[in-house]
Design a protein around this nucleic acid. Structure first.
Lengths: 221, 221
DNA sequence: TTCATTCTTACGGTTTCCCGTAAGGAAAGG
DNA sequence: CCTTTCCTTACGGGAAACCGTAAGAATGAA
């Protein structure tokens, strides 16, 4: 099993339980922190001492408080940690239930496991630790389902830009201005309209409001 | 301190920590359950045995799984529990961060405390237990703030109906048909338009897409 | 009852959105 | 070099949404 684990989790309650789980698994060196900035610092120090962490367990969303943080959340923390220590195993422990988001974590950040805070999360966490230790990746059972049955449609960054602008209040007819200002091509109004039509047709929608609701539900925007 | 406490919480991890907190507080008789139906049954049994619970600590949202439940969530559980045992103290322990909702719990259900799952929730929970035991009510510090600084618009059920229809793909001009069919008044198109305008103005929005995104973000729809 | 206030609805003009068609442009292949 | 194809863009008619106005209905008070 892993010997040196770092836990980044802002909820005191959750942190207590995770720590207990580590103890149950016989992991002696467990450090934990409530802030992303501290987590990165601990990773740095551990590397400097020649005793890097084997595993990082982190939440995704960290709440703001009086202590101003440079790192905004788990996603950014993982990216930065990987630049310092490419072989660091990462296990995300979060309540997020958005397949698209979790997919992105595996694909873009190369995380090793995702356990959702849910009914059987303690068992899940233990199983994840064991699976990851064997060099495999782990995904909570409940999330596997939804990833499988997820929609085939792939949103391009262009799509996401359009929908973000709409949900931000930009008039459809003004979107070309924004696209040109940011050197995004294509930038014609017809191209925007066409892309919106494609998305709506694939997903069986008729209105932009539906698209926005859908993207919010699946964490696309 | 309380002697007999019931915990209703579906997340294994959280349940572990809450149980530990109870032990730290020296509460010997702690029962816990993962389902609302079970919780109500335990309350019933305890009353029947002449040894009712002093305190119920419950989450609000319980996830569905293979076990079908009659009681849908914490709110309903509390209401039913109070009919069985009016003097039962209730402490809600949830991640919900909506002042309006929490307000309603205190006012309509007469709960005694609300602790939000957040950074210092373990400390909060302990403080809440002590405060409630003294016969006072408890509200997490962080929520007190947001209650004060709340600029949250109060969505009526009419508002929510409209936005739900829009995000479901209904054409704005067809909404009156739905309203009439369901005997919702007012039902005129102008009333729908007016209401949408009010919402958008209050929140500083200009487009329906923004409203949908906002309502999704805050769990209103 | 009568009057006043408020809420609801109906109507028209303007803007935006929707959708089909066709023209312009770039890349690939012959 | 030209042609084909695909992508992008421009344009225009019609539908929907937006917005102000005014008429009509409901509520409450004198």
């Amino acid at each position: 099993m892993f010997t040196k684990v770092l836990i980044a989790e802002d909820h005191e309650m959750t942190s207590i339980s995770v720590t207990k789980t580590m103890r149950d698994l016989g992991i002696s060196e467990t450090e934990y922190t409530y802030y992303c900035d501290d987590a990165l610092m601990l990773i740095k120090k551990a590397i400097a001492k020649g005793q890097p962490f084997d595993l990082l367990i982190t939440d995704l969303s960290f709440e703001e408080d009086h202590r101003k943080q440079r790192i905004s959340g788990g996603t950014e923390l993982i990216a930065l940690a990987k630049t310092l220590q490419a072989d660091l195993k990462v296990l995300v422990f979060s309540a997020e239930n958005k397949p698209a988001l979790v997919d992105g974590l595996f694909k873009d950040l190369g995380i090793d496991g995702y356990v959702r805070k849910a009914r059987h999360d303690a068992k899940d966490l233990r199983a994840a630790m064991e699976t990851i230790f064997l060099g495999k990746t782990y995904l909570s059972a409940d999330l596997k389902q939804s990833v499988k049955e997820k929609n085939t449609f792939e949103f391009t960054s262009f799509d996401i830009t359009i929908i973000s602008l709409l949900s931000g209040g930009t008039l459809q007819k003004n979107i070309p201005d924004y696209l040109q200002a940011n050197h995004i091509k294509p930038s014609g109004l017809s191209s925007v309209e066409k892309r919106l039509n494609v998305m709506k047709e694939v997903l069986g929608f008729s209105k932009n409001e539906q698209l926005v609701a859908y993207c919010k539900d699946f964490g696309i925007i």
